[in-house]
Amino acid sequence: MKKIGLITIHNWFNYGSMLQSYALNRVLNEIDGYECELIDFTPASIVGNERSWRLYSDVPEYQELRKKYKKEIVERRNVFQKFEELYKMGDMVYQSDEEIEKNPPAYDIYITGSDQIWNVNFRIASRAYFLAFTDSQEKFAFSTSIGRCKKEPLEEYRRFMEQYKKIYIREKAGAELLSEMFPEKEIGTLIDPTLMLEKSQWEELVDTQRICEEEYIGCYATLEEDLDKMMPILKYLYEKYNKKIILFGMILPREEEWVENLIVAGPLEFIRIIRDADLILTNSYHGTLFSLMFQTPFFTFNDEFENPRKEGILRMVHQEKRMVHNLVECQKALDDVIDFSMVRCILGQEREVALNKIKEVL
């Protein structure tokens, strides 16, 4: 039995980060002859960072909201922590590059996992995500993302990336950039780990009961400034369809009377909300992925900047029209019907390719 050490952002209280961590951890453990543990690397830049930081910080501006939702905020943190029990974890806990380099975990194979852990523009940037703590010859990157990162900031980490046996990047644009940096290496792509599990494998984790008995439209936002721009779209959908609006995610609650704030929602509730919704409006990459997987009609909001993650997945399943930048674009696309049978077929093919690639290179 070969032991694999997988490093990724596994305990940032963010739906996508935690769901992709679980998915790749599970995929690797289900391959015969291998046992995979998540390396418990939690640097200071992640500790206590629940994304919806305004609710958890001491910023005076949000004091009243924190008081109003004090109970829900505590419960929300608890459901995220509960989800971590689904991981297969290593024993050691590391909180800095220095700690993990001083006493590195011992594995036969080391894997850098998914999420934007090679986007070194982020405050969470760390050489540990480039496996700098080990001289092993068995280093792989599976579905890793550089986000919108450009070549220049990545040069600092070149010597670490050169040591990888195989590199598979999540986005095509990222793979192309690394191919320019390392023309001698074969740089490939792999879909996000959440798509490597079948819909039925996610369904077995969650309660079959609907999270809301009424029909509803779900809105999952990760940024306050994006949600401000999404609110006119959301209000239009509310008035057009006369359905409850459930707002959830990494944002502050909204006080509009037509909005229901669902604060106590961890990764498993995230799946249920998307599964049972009549429509999803999201600015999130993983909100888009799970809408596709659960065949829930959706719109993916994007700002004026390019977004290789969202653009790439929508292009792959031929659903580019589902990306909207404003209310007018949403109104134009409302009557378009998503061919979910085609989507399901494409995702199934991509899943098979990804699983075969991983088994082939290990």
Rank of each mutant, 00 (worst) to 15 (best):
L154D: 04
L327T: 10
V47T: 09
V93I: 10
G48W: 11
E311D: 12
Q63E: 09
E156V: 04
R309S: 12
D278W: 00
R309E: 04
R351M: 05
E75W: 04
E37M: 02
H286G: 01
G5Q: 07
E155V: 04
F122M: 13
K165M: 00
M231D: 06
E35S: 13
E186G: 06
L347H: 10
N49Q: 08
T194Q: 04
K172C: 01
S96Y: 10
K150F: 05
S200A: 15
I217P: 10
I211W: 06
E256D: 15
I338P: 09
Q20N: 09
F290V: 10
K321P: 01
C219Y: 09
P183V: 07
E198P: 02
T8G: 04
E225R: 14
C212P: 02
E75L: 14
R127L: 03
M89W: 06
I31P: 07
T189F: 02
K172I: 01
A141H: 08
P267W: 11
I109W: 13
V259A: 13
E152H: 07
K359P: 04
H286S: 04
I124T: 14
K229R: 14
L28W: 11
N78Y: 06
I111R: 08
L65G: 09
R127Q: 13
G266V: 05
C345M: 15
T208A: 14
E311Y: 08
I31C: 09
E239C: 05
Y164E: 01
R170Q: 02
I124D: 14
L65T: 14
F301C: 02
L205W: 14
E352I: 12
I109V: 15
R148D: 00
I251H: 03
D339T: 08
T300P: 01
D339W: 11
E224W: 03
Y87I: 09
F182C: 08
Y94G: 13
N29K: 08
N14W: 12
A354S: 15
R159N: 11
N119A: 11
E156F: 05
K3A: 07
E85F: 07
M230A: 05
C345Y: 15
E61L: 09
G348H: 11
E198D: 14
F340L: 05
I273S: 02
V317M: 06
Q20L: 13
F299I: 01
E215K: 15
F133W: 14
D135S: 13
E306W: 11
I274R: 00
Y236S: 03
R210G: 07
Y129I: 04
L190T: 10
V120L: 09
D97Q: 12
K321T: 12
K166Q: 08
L131S: 02
V74L: 10
L327H: 02
I187P: 05
S57E: 06
M89I: 02
I73D: 01
W12L: 08
E75C: 03
A333W: 01
L362D: 07
L197N: 11
S291K: 04
R351L: 05
L6G: 09
R76V: 02
Q295T: 00
L38N: 12
E304L: 03
E156G: 00
L237C: 14
F299K: 02
Y216H: 04
S114W: 10
L314C: 05
D226K: 02
S200V: 15
Y15Q: 07
F80T: 08
R275G: 00
M1C: 00
K67P: 00
Y164T: 00
S291R: 06
S200T: 15
N29H: 08
S136T: 10
R158H: 00
I111A: 08
